[in-house]
């Protein structure tokens, strides 16, 4: 199956699922509406189904250039995606400061930087610059994370 057709099938499936959900919206109290909350989504779903069928049926002319792929690249992207999820996970626990240092350090290592000093220094300096400008100049409140609150709660330092 060509890329076009595969993509068309994906969009076709998405449109069907989207339309199915749209059919089952709770009905709001009647105010003599000619268009309900589901009218627009249902027509979008119909349009999506028609267009994806056309893409599937009509002959395809490939114009776009496909991005390159290397095995090293695939591994790295996979690790980076995991790292971003990890960042979302730790920022709640450790707060901005520690998690950002962790995120950047691990990110640099995934991308092939080997010198630990460079990794750690770059990550820390960047984080400090960001932390200072966000909290001190722009007065944006950054949560210090649940762990530090827990620890300091135990120590009764608050």
């Amino acid at each position: 199956m060509s890329k076009n057709r595969f993509g068309a099938v994906v969009i076709f499936g998405f449109s069907i699922a989207y339309g199915m959900i749209a059919l089952h919206f709770p009905v709001p109290p009647a105010f003599n509406d000619s268009a309900s909350p589901s009218s627009f989504p249902i027509s979008l779903s119909a349009a999506g189904i028609i267009v994806s069928m056309l893409i599937f049926l009509l002959p395809a002319t490939s114009a776009a250039t496909t991005p390159e792929l290397t095995s090293k690249g695939i591994l790295r992207v996979f690790l980076l995606l995991l790292l971003m999820i990890f960042y979302g996970f730790v920022i709640k626990i450790f707060g901005f400061f520690v998690s950002t240092i962790l995120f950047l350090s691990i990110g640099f290592s995934i991308m092939g930087e080997r010198k630990l000093k460079v990794i750690f220094l770059t990550a820390t300096v960047t984080t400090i610059i960001f932390w200072v400008s966000l909290t001190q100049f722009l007065k944006i409140y950054l949560d210090s994370g649940s762990l530090s609150k827990f620890v300091f709660g135990l120590l009764n330092l608050d």
Binding site: F14, S15, L44, V51, S62, A63
Partner: peptide, 20 residues
């Protein structure tokens, strides 16, 4: 670009869908 028209339309529809 040529040959991309329908695909562009389909992606526009996806964008409209996400906006709802």
């Amino acid at each position: 670009p040529k040959g991309q028209f329908l695909k562009a339309i389909s992606m526009t529809i996806i964008g409209l869908m996400l906006s709802t």
